[in-house]
Amino acid sequence: MKNTLKPFFALLTIVILSSFTYLGGGHGYHIGDTATDFSLENIDGKTVSLSDYKSSKGYIVVFTCNTCPFSVAYEDRIEALNKKYADQGYPVIAIMPNNPEVKPGDSMEAMQARAKAKGFTFPYLMDKGQKIYPQYGATKTPHVYILKKTKKGNVVKYIGAIDDNHQDANAVNNKYVEDAVDALLSGNEIKEKQTRAIGCSIKV
């Protein structure tokens, strides 16, 4: 009997560990956690904090960069999210988490050039010293965290991918971020609170 159970418990351990990794390895924020504010340099040289957005209902925090093909593929969709939801109280706050010494294409100058070329309407902040992305538990670019502003602080309501097709915006079946924000705006429960972020690893 004991020998029969060994393979079962071994498989169970693998499944548990896989799930643990999927949810971010236990590091950073989880659904329902309260996210602390930050103060990061924007591409215009000014410092931006979540608290600057007095009238917002929450935030779409996106960890992204210039050099990752996945992030580049999502640039227009990130811009579209800001245009759709900023006026409804959920602005996009983009944060570049990579070490620019490792990825020169993610320097502040490169960020400024990319934002100008693409016409970004959202703040594009540098996580200088790479202190913020570990707090969130971000591991990929892009990696999204939707926060809802409440009396107790900015509560994490969604973590993961923007949608289910990074290759083709026209072939998307599930718009995770849009569905989550729409649910928050209508006062409904978010159906998928966490998905797997697909992208490049953050460079340290």
Rank of each mutant, 00 (worst) to 15 (best):
residue 135 Q to D: 06
residue 35 A to H: 10
residue 111 M to Q: 01
residue 196 R to H: 14
residue 181 V to L: 01
residue 138 A to F: 04
residue 158 Y to P: 00
residue 27 H to T: 14
residue 189 E to Q: 08
residue 193 K to M: 13
residue 24 G to T: 06
residue 113 A to G: 00
residue 59 Y to K: 06
residue 132 I to L: 11
residue 95 I to G: 14
residue 90 Y to M: 05
residue 115 A to N: 01
residue 161 A to Q: 09
residue 100 P to D: 00
residue 92 V to Y: 07
residue 59 Y to R: 05
residue 159 I to H: 00
residue 142 P to W: 12
residue 98 N to V: 02
residue 182 D to N: 10
residue 55 S to F: 11
residue 131 K to H: 15
residue 164 D to Y: 01
residue 143 H to W: 03
residue 9 F to S: 06
residue 29 Y to G: 06
residue 119 G to N: 10
residue 186 S to C: 10
residue 126 M to Y: 00
residue 36 T to R: 10
residue 109 E to I: 03
residue 88 Q to N: 13
residue 172 V to F: 05
residue 98 N to Y: 00
residue 60 I to H: 08
residue 182 D to Q: 10
residue 84 K to C: 12
residue 73 A to I: 07
residue 12 L to Q: 14
residue 185 L to I: 06
residue 51 S to W: 10
residue 156 V to C: 05
residue 200 C to V: 05
residue 88 Q to E: 13
residue 196 R to G: 15
residue 145 Y to V: 11
residue 137 G to V: 02
residue 66 N to K: 11
residue 93 I to E: 09
residue 190 I to N: 12
residue 49 S to P: 09
residue 74 Y to P: 04
residue 56 S to K: 02
residue 29 Y to M: 09
residue 15 V to R: 01
residue 135 Q to M: 08
residue 80 A to I: 15
residue 74 Y to S: 02
residue 17 L to W: 05
residue 128 K to S: 12
residue 101 E to L: 12
residue 118 K to I: 04
residue 29 Y to H: 14
residue 163 D to C: 01
residue 153 G to D: 00
